[in-house]
Nucleic acid binder design. Structure first.
Length: 788
DNA sequence: AATGGCGCACTCTACG
DNA sequence: CGTAGAGTGCGC
């Protein structure tokens, strides 16, 4: 690796230092540059130097600009005011921006020592918590060495286990500790157990500090782990899924529903993935110190190592491309790349970031319109359809329109909305007049076409590089290390390219450009609209449009569309080259839900084995907020709908409660703290109370409890429910019953069958198959009887 | 203290 | 009971 493992800034005795970790050791040096900001005023007692720079937004600023240099970060922070420009840039980032070559002098060029780590914890009936449930096994594996499994003898004593494993980890001295969801589970759990056992977590660090969990300030959830001198790489949070965001572009092709380690590992064809039943998972106590536990944990470690071999090389490449330490890239947010790159580029041409996007345009920043989404035709498309997508639409618009903070300005806004139009001025400025329906105004944007903008030149460079890598990949063996290396590289470039538009529009970005963002989305809406009209010109073919793609049936050949598009672009933008081109993907069949914009099913063309996949789009059809029974109907009946057609017999089995499992009818609800509910009858409150009744435990806020819907039963005789309850017994019985993974469906005699049948109805209704619902059938029959 | 963007479907909760 | 607004999930 050509970059260090970890770098951080620190202040000792008022001196600004930098600490860099590489090859297992730290160097502490005087910072090669001191923290500074720019200011229109000299600051007393501070080294202020008059510099020749220009401001990004206030381009006609003619006053002085001082570079004010401080002894250390603390001094800078004390002096930072509204008048200070770029004062929020951290010193460590300043190093990467101003002197990127500096950090490269400290490469971690020894082979990386990468440790996979996973723990198994005691559980009995309920989800484990670190106060009551000990760790019962820990698995580790350094690089490709054999997997090591350590197990506790008893379910409630992990002291010896922890000490043994900590000693071993110290001995192995890993640079990187790899986990799956370790930020939120394994690491805090280990630390909590250390606290319980009075063992120091400094065992795990290189520098004698304690392991530290970094919280997200809005959600309060852990978002990173500091293990002094090492990097903690959490595969799930960093590469697979963090909250809503699917992080890795590769995953899209899998169309995964679940993102737990085993599902992801299986999707990547990891061999021998062992999954235990829920019964075992909720009673891990029963397998303490057994081969079963050993094998299970071994499989988890195998998955962890397998997945990190796929993802980690790309992250290392990212650090090398960006020329920052590995820990920075592991813990960064997606916007970091853009911040660093633009700060470097603008710093190099003496432009100072005087405002953030939100400061420069408060109203538009908060109210700008985004992409265009519209559905025109719904229902079943049995004979197939096409998806015509614009390739890398937004990045190519940056090229086409020469968009950059330095070339693009918002000239003015006008109250009256008008159609999109373009105009070229005599001095070669392209002006766009863009209607924004969300901000409810016309936005006039000016682009200087006399010079190429830095941002657009940068996008061009990245796209050229990526195209070259992809070309090279075609000549390589798919299983060769070179191929994997190229793949990691091209994927990184893709991610950078795609994040630039978002960075332009980001409220807090210093070198963003709302003008460029509005030019992109506004032109995107317009061009897609024009394309739709072209495709529809003699017949209604378009089914739906969304951002950069159009679904349609029939229509001209791709060549014909390209021909039209190229001419259109050239004329519209007064230029002789079009950067906008299309891709055409055929599907065997499709179904677009009525009264919905983005809910549809697609059936892929048969692959070389003749296999066809059903792709489900949209939360409503995916049933992410619904019970598994609902999704089962969409999955199975949806596929039949697009292939063989659906009969009454096909849907019948979903109405038969004998076919349901408990999981099929179980909902989950994340509960808050009990006293934060204003209404005492809330579902959340009921579940918390049932939990307390049953397990005599208070549920933590944020816990997800499972429940089923039950029919309110007749009042139970009072004497049977009065025991140990002092408060008067409520007359009303609950409609919701708490269930745990240890319950069985037979424990729920009064399941609300009608409710669940209605859920099946809903699924069929969304597939426009309401006439197959039994209630409709009955109604029909009755009607015919009545007719007689 | 530090955060890529917006659009649409859908659920949940508070409140009248 | 109906509904507005917040929150969540998915998609591009």
């Amino acid at each position: 690796m050509i970059v260090p493992l970890v770098a951080e800034s620190l202040v000792t005795d008022g001196r600004q230092k930098v600490k860099i970790w590489r090859n297992g050791e730290a160097v502490v040096i005087d910072s090669p540059l001191l923290p500074y900001f720019y200011s229109p005023l000299e600051i007393p007692m501070v080294r202020s130097e008059l510099v020749k720079k220009t401001l990004l937004y206030e381009t006609d600023y003619s006053g002085d600009i001082y570079k004010c240099v401080f002894r250390n970060e603390n001094d800078l922070r004390k002096n930072a005011s509204k008048n200070a420009w770029e004062s929020r840039v951290k010193l460590i980032d300043r190093l990467y921006i101003d002197i990127p070559e500096y950090i490269i002098q400290y490469p971690n060029n020894n082979e990386l020592r990468i440790l996979s780590l996973d723990i198994e914890v005691d559980s009995f009936l309920t989800f484990p918590n670190a106060v009551e449930n000990a760790i019962i096994a820990i698995g580790i594996q350094l690089n490709d060495m054999p997997i090591e499994i350590y197990m506790a003898k008893k379910h409630n004593d992990d002291r010896d286990l922890l000490i043994e494993v900590f000693k071993r980890i110290k001995e192995l001295d890993p640079d990187i500790i790899v986990t799956y969801n370790g930020i939120r589970f394994d690491m805090p759990y280990i630390c909590d157990r250390c606290k319980y056992n009075r063992i120091s977590t400094t065992w795990l660090t290189r520098d004698g500090t304690d392991v530290e969990h970094i919280e997200d300030h809005t959600t309060g959830e852990y978002k990173a782990t500091n293990i002094g001198g090492r990097v903690h790489y959490d595969i799930m949070v960093r590469s697979v899924k963090d909250g809503q965001k699917v992080r890795d572009q590769n995953l899209f092709q899998f169309n995964l529903k679940h993102f737990d380690m085993k599902s992801v590992a299986k999707a990547y064809n990891c061999p021998d993935v062992i999954k235990e039943s829920q019964e075992v998972m909720s009673n891990m106590r029963s397998i303490v110190n057994t081969k079963q536990l050993h094998d299970y944990l071994e499989s988890d470690i195998r998955c962890t190592t397998y997945l990190r071999k796929i993802y980690l090389p790309a992250i290392i490449k990212q650090a090398e491309n960006l020329q920052v330490p590995l820990n920075t890239v592991v813990n960064m947010t997606p916007s970091y790349t853009g911040s660093i790159i633009f700060a470097r580029k603008f710093g190099a041409i003496d432009i100072v970031g005087d405002m953030t996007v939100g400061e420069a345009h408060p109203f538009l920043s908060a109210n700008k319109q985004g992409a265009w989404v519209q559905t025109y035709r719904t229902g079943l498309f049995k004979d197939g359809l096409r998806d015509i997508d614009v390739t890398s639409f937004y990045p190519n618009l940056i090229l086409q329109l020469n968009l950059c903070p330095t070339t693009t300005k918002i000239l003015r806004t006008e109250d009256e909305l008008k159609p999109y139009s373009t105009h070229m001025t005599e001095d070669n400025h392209l002006q766009l007049s863009i209607p924004d329906e969300r901000a409810n105004c016309q936005i006039i944007i000016d682009i200087n076409m006399n010079k190429q903008g830095i941002a657009s030149a940068f996008v061009a460079e990245l796209m050229r590089d990526r195209a070259e890598i992809k070309k090279r990949m075609k000549t390589l063996d798919k299983n060769s290390p070179e191929y994997a290396d190229c793949d990691a590289n091209q994927l990184n470039l893709k991610i950078i390219i795609n994040s630039l538009t978002g960075f332009f529009g980001m409220q807090y970005s210093l070198f963003g450009s709302l003008a460029a963002y509005i030019a992109i989305t506004g032109s995107g809406r317009y061009l897609l609209r024009q394309m739709k009209d072209f495709l529809d010109k003699d017949e209604e073919r378009v089914i739906a449009c969304n951002t950069d793609g159009i679904y349609l049936t029939g229509g001209p050949s791709l060549d014909e569309i390209h021909e039209w598009l190229e001419a259109f672009i050239k004329e519209k933008y007064f230029c002789d080259k079009s950067y906008i081109w299309l891709e055409d993907t055929p599907y065997s069949a499709g179904y677009f839900q009525k009264n919905a914009e983005k809910h549809y099913l697609l059936l892929t063309k048969p692959d070389k084995n003749g296999k066809q996949d059903l792709i489900i789009h949209g939360g409503g059809l995916k049933g992410s907020a619904k019970i598994p029974l609902y999704s089962a109907v969409i999955d199975e009946i949806g596929l039949k709908l697009l292939t063989t057609g659906v009969t009454e017999a096909d849907v019948e089995k979903f109405y038969n409660s004998a076919n349901w499992s408990l999981e099929d009818v179980t909902f989950g609800r994340t509960v808050k703290q009990r006293d934060s509910y204003k209404n005492g009858g809330e579902l959340g409150v009921q579940l918390i109370d049932q939990y307390k009744d049953r397990f005599d435990k208070v549920v933590h806020s944020g816990t997800r409890l499972n429940y089923v819907k039950v029919s309110p039963t007749k009042k139970v005789a009072k004497h049977t429910i009065r025991r140990k309850v002092k408060v008067p017994v409520e007359e009303k019985t609950s409609e919701y019953k708490l269930v745990t993974i240890f319950d069985k469906l037979s424990d729920v005699p009064n399941l609300d069958l009608d409710y669940y049948k209605a859920e099946v109805d809903k699924a069929l209704e969304r597939l426009d198959l309401a006439d197959l619902c039994p209630k409709t059938q009955v109604a029909k029959e009755q009607k015919s009887l009545f007719d007689f």
